[in-house]
């Protein structure tokens, strides 16, 4: 396939994952509302919010880095997504997975958050700084079990290429990492709870506590960009987890079903548990999940 066609299909798949990620957000709001005995917003509410934010007539900027914060964030989201194969064996939905491996993807996951931290810092609002410090410290903590789990996978499959990892899990569902390396999957799924920032790890955004966390000063189209990225980034993370641990997907319906099921894990936990404080969540991640991750590495290296 020529590079032009590849770029074209990559953008098509980016559109698909954006719509799916935002729909998932809407479904999650609905589920949380029903758990609390409310009707909740319509499923398409995230789309209306994005339209509304982009339709604002005024926007203010606090400087160049403030301006670039959301740009870095969405670059991180798109970058994460572009190096993950969405459908195994499909030439159209493979993105640029041949050009990068799982380490590059992990770097991109971190990249957007760092850019956002710099941008929010220039906003100058003290609550942004508090949100950033909470977010970065929590992220540093959950990266440890996630990185250990990826190292365990690299030892198990002798590769860091995501397509090769998916290929090794084909055949039967018993070949999925979930069954061949359950300890790594447990460590990574607990790390995903922190990544998705639902309860008990929601202190970064902290609704009703400090205003909205890092994006306190962001408004209008800046916020629209951040909300769009939330859809892309959610989709990218879920597709990554599906590829690494749950056998990937060979068609779009399998992708939708599997990512939905993976997401529901953090939603169910989020609906059932109260919130950790930052120091509690850091201690949590550095204890049991890290030990499970170390065990999974030892299991395959010894």
């Amino acid at each position: 396939m020529s590079i032009v066609a590849k770029v074209f299909w990559a953008f098509i798949s980016l559109g698909v994952v954006t719509i799916w990620g935002l729909t998932l957000n809407g479904i999650v709001h609905k589920i949380f509302a029903r758990v609390q005995g409310r009707l909740g917003p319509p499923v398409w509410q995230p789309f209306i919010d994005i339209f509304k934010n982009n339709a604002k007539r005024t926007a203010i900027s606090h400087g160049i880095m403030y301006y670039l914060g959301p740009v870095f964030r969405i670059a991180g989201g798109i970058g994460t997504y572009m190096f993950i194969p969405v459908l195994f064996g499909s030439p159209y939905f493979s993105n640029f997975s041949a050009s990068g491996d799982v380490l590059l993807v992990m770097y991109f996951i971190f990249f957007g958050q760092l850019g956002m931290a710099l941008g929010a810092g220039e906003g100058g609002h003290p609550y942004s700084a508090i949100g950033v410090s909470r977010g970065l410290s929590q992220m540093t903590a959950f990266e440890v079990p996630f990185a250990l789990s990826v190292i365990s996978l690299a030892i198990q499959y002798h590769t860091l290429n995501i397509t090769d990892i998916v290929a090794a899990q084909q055949g039967s569902f018993l070949n999925w990492t979930l069954f061949t390396n359950p300890l790594a999957v447990i460590a990574a799924m607990i790390a995903m709870l922190g990544m998705n920032m639902y309860n008990p790890f929601s202190v970064v955004i902290a609704p009703q506590e400090i205003p909205i966390g890092p994006p306190t000063e962001y408004q209008s189209a800046f916020l629209g960009l951040l909300a769009t990225n939330r859809g892309i980034f959610n989709g990218a993370k879920l597709v990554l987890f599906m590829n690494l641990f749950f056998g990937g997907a060979t068609n779009i319906f399998e992708m939708v079903a599997k990512t939905f099921a993976i997401y529901m894990f953090s939603v169910f936990v989020g609906a059932a548990y109260p919130r950790f404080r930052t120091e509690d969540s850091i201690r949590f991640f550095l204890k049991v999940p890290t030990l499970i991750g170390i065990a999974s590495v030892l299991l395959f290296s010894l």
Binding site: A33, L39, P42, P211, I212, T216, Y218
Partner: peptide, 22 residues
Amino acid sequence: VTARYDISRLGMQMRPTPRQAS
């Protein structure tokens, strides 16, 4: 915002910062 009246079904929500509120 409670279950009895629930403005979120109308697409409304509380926003703690004036920058994002309308």
